[in-house]
């Protein structure tokens, strides 16, 4: 909270801000929540857990055939083990990795709510939780992909995964050509959040370098 919003409550705060602030005050007074714990929860998902986690997992799968095999066989163990990444826990208790190939393109959605693999991708973007995506991904995934600028060959099988249970899915996108011999760190920079949901592809190296980042 910045000091200006304390100085002029009501004049600057929206109705939702006032309502949530009142709720938090009440719950702290009751002793049901610890405000420092709330700070820690926000800090975790705003700054520490996000799609860079998943990008590291994908980069290792591209670079290390034994890890790829483990990931596709038991993603929960391969991603969560202390000796690999230790990405585990809430909304990633049971993970499955889906590998894209020239024949099969996987897309993940949760039509019923917003199930998403938090330990590897962080919190879902607004569009993933929204009615347009949740309604259309299962019936018109090619139309959805077109809105993300992705067009796949007509004979590519589009396989949509509706997250109806506590199994959380992440996509392993295809490794871009022209990346032979790259380090995992360099490879990870090509892995976008959307490529791990299935609404995007990994960045090609040339475009990536032209973009300068």
């Amino acid at each position: 909270m910045d000091s200006s919003s304390h100085a002029h409550p009501g004049s600057e705060l929206t109705e939702m801000e006032l309502r949530v602030r009142a709720l938090e005050t009440l719950l702290v007074e009751k002793g049901y929540v610890d405000p420092a714990a709330l700070d820690a929860l926000v800090e975790t998902y705003e700054h520490r857990v996000g799609p860079r986690n998943g990008a590291r997992v994908v980069a290792r799968a591209w670079a290390d055939p034994a890890f790829r095999e483990w990931l596709l066989r038991d993603a929960t163990a391969a991603i969560g083990a202390d000796e690999t990444f230790g990405f585990r826990g809430r909304q990633g208790e049971h993970l499955v990795a889906l590998e894209n190939t020239p024949c099969v393109h996987n897309v993940v959605v949760c039509t019923l709510c917003s199930c998403y693999p938090w330990p590897v991708l962080g919190l879902p973007p607004v569009w993933y939780k929204s009615a347009p995506y949740r309604s259309r991904a299962v019936i018109d995934p090619r139309g959805v992909l077109a809105e993300f600028g992705v067009t796949l060959p007509a004979d590519t099988e589009i396989r949509v995964w509706d997250s109806t249970a506590e199994i959380r899915y992440m996509v392993v996108p295809m490794r871009p050509a022209g990346t032979d011999g790259w380090t995992e760190e360099r490879l990870a920079a090509l892995v976008t959040r959307d490529s791990m949901i299935g609404t995007g592809l990994a960045r090609p190296p040339a475009g990536f370098e032209e973009g300068g980042r």
């Binding site: 309604s135 809105e147 993300f148």
Partner: peptide, 29 residues
Amino acid sequence: GGMMGFGPIDPEADEPPFHADWERRAFAV
């Protein structure tokens, strides 16, 4: 699943995890 008429998906470039302070607190609470 399968409903129609909600319009385009409208992804936001470089979307932050939260869009307002109340969203941070609502999530955490």
